[in-house]
């Protein structure tokens, strides 16, 4: 889609775009270039002579069992979390889209958790799902340590994933509801004329037509799960990557390695791998969005 751009000037658009271009050059492109540079060199941070070391930093990262641990943790985080976010969002969107009396009230509240920062939500959940108080303590009353995220890595991972799901379900809900509302009413009516009840209509008509939105959300949410601000924020504020690296997602490890371990080259190599991953996601999504345009 091209607009019939009407103004002819070469310097005015440059002038208008300049502030943002300067900012992204300084705070985006330069850092990205630096990440690439550091990933292939070994140098003391912020100066000193850099030495080209080829793939040594990558080799080192890949031979570290803790790195592979973070890959596994991230994979679990970025598949389980998005799956439940989309499942919950879809279920609620289908319910609200039936437009029964009062559904506006529910819609209003479903969106609110998304306004809360991951770390702030994390703080609340540290209390709510604490083994000693809050709601989960009652479980431990049955038998001690039935639930103890401070002790078991798997429990801690479940905890951070729950927080992620809690926050992002409202987000998928918004998109899926918007998607449902753009499905022509006549289609539902046609299905009803064909004798399909509300459940059949949801499964046979609405969900298939939501496929583009669902796919978009899957890619977005998985990207968010791998590199999102909340992923880092939740892990940092709730578990600090522990216990025993049980919640050490890739992003957390990168930041930790850089600022705690002061291993900039190792962190950069890990960043490059993560960037490659996101590029694959983005590419898939881009191809898909292109297809969707043709489909329309």
């Amino acid at each position: 889609m091209e607009k019939r751009a009407v103004f002819k000037s070469w310097w005015l658009p440059v002038l208008f775009a300049l502030p943002q271009l300067v900012l992204i050059l300084l705070f985006f492109y330069w850092p990205v270039a630096a990440v690439v540079n550091w990933a292939f060199t070994l140098e003391p941070p912020f100066g000193g002579a850099a030495e080209f070391v080829g793939f040594a930093n990558f080799k080192e990262a890949l031979s570290d069992p803790f790195y592979w641990n973070s890959v596994v943790v991230s994979l679990i985080f970025a598949t389980v979390g998005p799956f439940f976010c989309i499942f919950i969002g879809l279920t609620l969107a289908l319910a609200v889209d039936r437009q029964l009396p009062g559904s506006g009230f529910f819609r209003f509240f479903y969106i609110l958790p998304f306004a809360i920062a991951g770390p702030a939500a994390g703080m609340a959940f540290r209390f709510i799902l604490s083994p000693e108080r809050g709601l989960a303590a009652s479980i431990n009353a049955l038998s001690p340590d039935l639930w103890n995220p401070a002790k078991y890595g798997s429990h801690a991972l479940a905890l951070v994933i729950i927080i992620f799901i809690w926050k992002w379900s409202g987000y998928t809900f918004i998109f899926l509801l918007a998607g449902l509302q753009s499905v022509p009413r006549a289609l539902g009516e046609a299905a009803a004329m064909d004798g399909a009840g509300p459940f059949r209509r949801a499964i046979d008509v609405q969900v298939p037509l939501l496929a583009p939105t669902l796919f978009f959300l899957l890619v977005t949410m998985m990207t968010e799960g791998f590199v999102g601000a909340d992923t880092f924020g939740i892990v940092h504020s709730v578990t600090g990557g522990g216990p025993n690296h049980g919640t050490e997602v890739m992003v957390y490890r990168i930041v930790d390695e850089a600022f705690q371990g002061l291993n900039y080259s190792g962190a950069s190599a890990q960043s490059i791998i993560l960037i490659g991953l996101i590029m694959v996601f983005t590419f898939i999504q881009f191809r898909f969005i292109e297809k969707r345009v043709h489909y329309k």
């Binding site: 705070f27 985006f28 330069w30 850092p31 990205v32 630096a34 990440v35 550091w38 941070p45 912020f46 590199v227 999102g228 601000a229 992923t231 880092f232 992003v251 990168i254 930041v255 850089a258 600022f259 900039y264 962190a267 950069s268 960043s271 993560l274 960037i275 996101i278 590029m279 983005t282």
Partner: peptide
């Protein structure tokens, strides 16, 4: 494509 988290070190620099 690339959130702050993966380029945070050089951005900091």
């Amino acid at each position: 494509m690339l959130p702050l988290e993966v380029r945070v070190v050089p951005t900091y620099a």
